[in-house]
Amino acid sequence: MTVLTLTLIIALLALAAVAVKRVPAGQVHSLYRHGKPVRLLQPGTHVVLPLLDRVGHRIDLGGRTLRFDASMAETQAVHGTVYWQVLEPERADAVIEQADQLIRSGVLDALHADTEASQAERREVAARLKCSLNQHLRENGVMVTRVELEAA
């Protein structure tokens, strides 16, 4: 075997190894070609075009958490946690990088609209906050599963 033949075989094997993508269970990978989304790779093993395709986002379908701090009134600070998950990865792919900012801004907007809530009404405020967030996030394939509020 010549050096050129050996180099060619090694290059082809490396190219074949790069062409195989494995997506773990509980995740979806978005595949991009020339900067545009092509398809979603579901859990399992997939063959892609190694020089043209790239994985854009690795979307975790399990739950995520987001901690926040907000002030509802001049004297009352609220801390809390929002639990959310991706339900429709096709829709969420476009906004997955901004999901935390979308949720955080939705929390602040909803809490500022609900400034007269007392500590005793915290559960009701959390339920209204969850409903409000889900109305805004549903079109992006994301759902808030639970909101926990803690008054500081």
Rank of each mutant, 00 (worst) to 15 (best):
R91P: 04
P89F: 03
A94Q: 12
L13W: 12
V107A: 06
I10L: 15
L49Q: 11
R39I: 00
Y83R: 04
R58I: 06
I10K: 08
K36W: 10
V18C: 11
M72K: 00
L12G: 02
P89S: 00
V18D: 12
M143S: 09
R64S: 07
A152E: 14
K36H: 14
L8T: 13
T45V: 15
Q27W: 13
L31G: 10
Q27D: 05
L31W: 08
E88R: 11
S132Q: 13
V144E: 02
A120E: 09
T115D: 13
H46S: 05
L40H: 05
R146Q: 12
L40F: 03
V38F: 05
P24R: 08
R33G: 03
V147Q: 05
V23D: 02
L87E: 13
C131T: 15
S30D: 06
H34K: 13
T115P: 14
A73W: 04
L41I: 02
I10S: 12
R104L: 09
R128L: 09
L51W: 12
L41Y: 00
L15G: 06
H46A: 05
A94Y: 11
R22V: 15
K130G: 04
M1C: 11
C131F: 14
Q101I: 10
K130L: 11
E74C: 02
V28E: 00
L40G: 04
V107W: 05
M143W: 07
A19I: 08
A110V: 03
Y32S: 04
E88S: 08
V95S: 07
W84M: 02
W84Y: 12
E88Y: 05
Q98Y: 05
